[in-house]
Design a protein around this nucleic acid. Structure first.
Length: 519
RNA sequence: GGGCGUGUAGCUCAAUGGUAGAGCAGUGGCCUUUUAAGCCAUUGGUUGGGGGUUCGAGUCCCUCCACGCUCACCA
């Protein structure tokens, strides 16, 4: 895809590759011959398409005659055109909507009309000056008396024909729908599919809502390193990169956790970060190598406090983005209004499978019990992983309505405090909505001695049974030794939240540029 | 990485192993209120790449590439 221009290899200029492109190329040449700039520097616009229509309709109700006189200059991309002899209709589209241009040879003159007829194509950007009017068919339009091309489209966009029914529903014909091409040429997808544009507006609204909520709740937004000498805070394989001058390998972060909690030591009461995490692992409908994460931490609270904030935060975001805390996802009506269901992991697994994992404290026994219940797991799984498999296969898909699953086995949660009176479990929850894991939180472990012990245990566990050993972050332990207030922390997968709020079933639909294999 | 599936014109899709097609877009023509405008004519293809079977392959076989679904992986 990328052309590199260097050395002996002369770069090859682009040339038309098919007939539509050749025709547009010819138009470009003709424009040049007539001294018409196809890509002028200067543009003017007095109204967006929506403003022009609104201005007309507002005045029309009061004084229809003066409404006809409103003069506008509008700009946009030609998305429909209809040449009818000496009359030409076109719809132009801008970021806010569409307006129809009505071009008559009588109004623009033979020269311009000839240009319109021969050399304007779907996809071109134009600027039109004229007066507002209503056509015989009733559509508010610009009766054009000056028309200029703003940018020639040399390649044809897969522009869609659509019919708007009387009830307002839009029927589309031949939509640009090839999934791979839509992702690889997202600009084309966005240009022709308004639904795609809507998804990313909703995404922006989601992130804005998260910020607004947390800012208003007294959280401070911070930024922590993406390039890290040590990675941690989650169990995932990292991407590795290298700093040349420092002769140092660096990792792209897999979570923000350890850096954010250092800030609680530094006497901020509440902090959050929204940013990118990178995990060098499998790609799926809910996994992308880089993804957007929200993590927030608050002092003087615990995981109960995190549940209260989280359910209000998500309900707020849903209201800001969709207008209601009740949403539809994959055909299910989901009510995000607090309070959400809360159930312990142990009870949830017991309900769905009849297995009480406490009865099987060793991996082989639990594995056997699972097998008896028809649940497969890799033979070399640790006990904690088996519990996670039970959660993932038997519980997670059933959690359509928002649910907090509480209290996880200690040995899969090294950064959380244990449940008082139960050394085997920690105060941790994961939230599930629409059958997907959306977030993860705990009562943060702030005992430096306990923390170091857990790290060492994890190291042993992984060294023995898993290739994914996590390095010990000594500086984090030093920070803990200075003292961190009792705190709660939570991480939410922003991409998955956007999937939920926009009713998209794959993460790629909510990423502008999802990861794709190089072609 | 495994399994299943898909890949045909710019876009959306057809085509029993027997001459590669349609709609839209494009081009030429008619049309001064159209809106999936219409009517007439017309261009456009190394059927993802490579190899094989066959008199003959878009179709069957092998292989490679990409994508989708799914499983595995994923504190």
């Amino acid at each position: 895809m990328t052309r590199i221009c260097q050395g002996e290899r002369a770069p090859i200029m682009w040339q038309p590759t098919n007939t539509p492109e050749q025709d547009r190329w010819n138009s470009l040449q003709r424009l040049g011959e007539r001294g018409i700039p196809a890509y002028p520097n200067r543009v003017t616009r007095t109204h967006t398409s929506a403003e022009a229509i609104r201005a007309f309709e507002t005045l029309e109700t009061v004084n229809p005659e003066s409404a006809e006189g409103i003069e506008v200059t509008v700009c946009g991309r030609i998305v429909r055109q209809n040449l009818k002899g000496k009359v030409y209709f076109a719809h132009i589209e801008d970021g806010e909507g569409r307006v129809q241009l009505f071009v008559r040879v009588d109004n623009v003159g033979e020269d311009t009309y000839d240009m319109v007829k021969r050399d304007l194509d779907l996809g071109d950007f134009v600027q039109a000056t004229g007066t507002m009017m209503r056509t015989r068919a009733g559509e508010v339009s610009v009766l054009v008396h000056e028309l200029a091309i703003l940018a020639k489209a040399l390649s044809p966009l897969p522009i869609i024909k659509e019919r708007v029914a009387d009830d307002g529903t839009v029927e589309r014909y031949g939509a640009f729908s090839d999934v791979e091409e839509r992702y690889r040429q997202r600009y084309a997808d966005l240009a022709v599919n308004p639904d795609t544009r809507a998804v990313f507006r909703a995404r922006a609204a989601t992130v804005k809502a998260l910020r607004t909520f947390l800012d208003d709740a007294g959280f401070l937004e911070v930024e922590t390193p993406i390039l890290q000498p040590l990675y941690g805070g989650a169990a995932a394989r990292p991407f590795v990169t290298h700093h040349n001058q420092l002769h140092q390998d660096l990792y792209l972060r897999i979570s923000f956790e350890l850096y954010l909690k250092r800030l609680l030591v530094g006497m901020y009461d509440a902090v959050y970060e929204i940013g990118r995490d990178f995990r060098n692992e499998g790609v799926s409908f809910k996994h992308n190598p880089e993804f957007t994460q929200l993590e927030f931490y608050q002092a003087y609270t615990d995981y109960h406090g995190m549940m209260d904030i989280t359910e209000r935060l998500v309900a707020f975001a849903a209201e800001q983005v969709t207008g209601s805390p009740v949403i539809t996802f994959e055909g299910n009506v989901i009510d995000l209004t607090p309070p959400w269901n809360r159930i312990t992991l142990r009870d949830a697994i017991r309900q769905q499978t009849g297995i009480d994992y406490v009865d099987y404290p060793e991996a082989p026994a639990l594995h056997a019990a699972m097998k008896a219940a028809g649940i497969d797991a890799p033979p070399d799984s640790t006990w904690g992983k088996l519990v996670d498999t039970l959660l993932g296969t038997a519980v997670e898909p059933t959690l359509i309505q928002p649910t907090f699953i509480l209290d996880y086995p200690r040995d899969i949660s090294p950064l959380a405090k244990t449940v008082p009176g139960d050394d085997t479990h920690v105060e941790r929850f994961e939230m599930f909505i629409g059958g997907m894991e959306m977030g993860n939180a705990f009562t943060e472990l702030n005992n430096p001695i306990d923390q170091e012990t857990r790290f060492l245990e994890m190291g042993r566990l992984y060294a023995a049974e898993d290739e994914m050993a996590t390095p010990i972050d000594e500086d984090y332990l030093r920070a803990m030794r200075y003292g961190m207030p009792p705190s709660g922390g939570c991480g939410i997968g922003v991409d998955r939240l956007v999937m939920l709020l926009t009713d998209r079933s794959t993460i790629r639909e909510v990423l502008l540029y999802p990861h794709l294999r190089e072609r």
